[in-house]
Write a protein that binds this DNA or RNA. Structure first.
Lengths: 159, 159
DNA sequence: CCGGTGAGTAGGAAATCCGAACTCACCATA
DNA sequence: TATGGTGAGTTCGGATTTCCTACTCACCGG
């Protein structure tokens, strides 16, 4: 009872914190649409297929979190458009990675519903690399170093 | 009325499909633990803080999807351990990206709870690059090319 | 004035989630 | 051989969220 980590607190983690913001149902799909430029409420409803009230809740949360902004594109009648902030755009790579993964593993046969082209002229196949050395990141190349209490790492990634 | 996309069907999308598998609450945290080598049921319960039944459901789904495998590490008493498959490991970059993002945007002050070191000797800061040219991916460098019906792209990313 | 559009709210039914307790098989030890 | 402990779940009712449909409210165009 004295210790801080009794039982039911999950461990501190930036992944969990990030997911608390963008891990709810539809949140990343909102970001997808907004990054594509489809930032109006009814577009979002149609394209995502989310209930309007859930969408309204998500949008509020994402704006509060600084991931989206709500900008008026017309006064009288007031009409709004959601756009990604810089922080929101920094989440776009997650979408690209999910798409690359989904294309590879869930669409062996059916064609891709969407292709993203990179400025270099080729279809974008996203990979994650290390900023320091530029190398592609593989699981075996990683070592975990817990900084906060509550962490244990038992596997091959252990420090 | 003739068209296929009446109203309430969301559009076909690999991002949505991928999220249908790993976008549920706790799923990516399960992957985090499993990638760290903490693949036993009670470890997962403790480290993630999820209810046991929800966790059991998630694990079944992830195994069915081919993202995890359930391996016995001891017969008599039967004891199991979940491990990432190759497809599961290919999702790890998403975790790294989320962590990098979370560290940057949600922990301006509080220190990182965990540092991942790359084999190159530096802390891993994940970025997404294009397989074709190796360049870091920025929003402005992308162009969307819808392949399936139901897609509209109005913004700066439009083809 | 009348219908249509954009951006939501309201309200009850349906699905999920939660926490704690329970099971079941096995081992350890006394 | 009883006693307790661990791992891996399952079961249970109740609390929360989601879902869906319908409604509002402001405005515009004809």
């Amino acid at each position: 009872m004295a210790a801080s980590r009794s039982s039911r607190e999950p461990r501190p983690c930036s992944i969990a914190d990030a997911l608390a913001l963008v891990g709810e149902k539809y949140s990343l799909l909102v970001l997808r649409e907004v990054c594509l430029g489809n930032g109006r409420f009814d577009q979002l409803v149609r394209n995502i297929g989310a209930p309007r009230d859930v969408l309204a809740t998500r949008l509020r949360r994402l704006v509060d979190a600084g991931i989206l902004t709500k900008q008026a594109y017309s006064e009288r009648p007031q009409r709004f458009e959601y756009r990604p902030t810089r922080a929101g755009l920094e989440l776009e790579p997650i979408l690209m990675t999910l798409m690359t993964w989904g294309d590879r593993h869930l669409r062996k046969d059916t064609g891709r519903p969407m292709v993203i082209e990179h400025v270099c002229g080729h279809e974008l196949l996203a990979v994650v690399t290390c900023t320091a050395c530029g190398g592609v990141v593989h699981h075996e190349d990683l070592t975990a170093h817990p900084q906060a209490p509550g962490w244990t790492v038992t596997g091959p990634t252990a420090a």
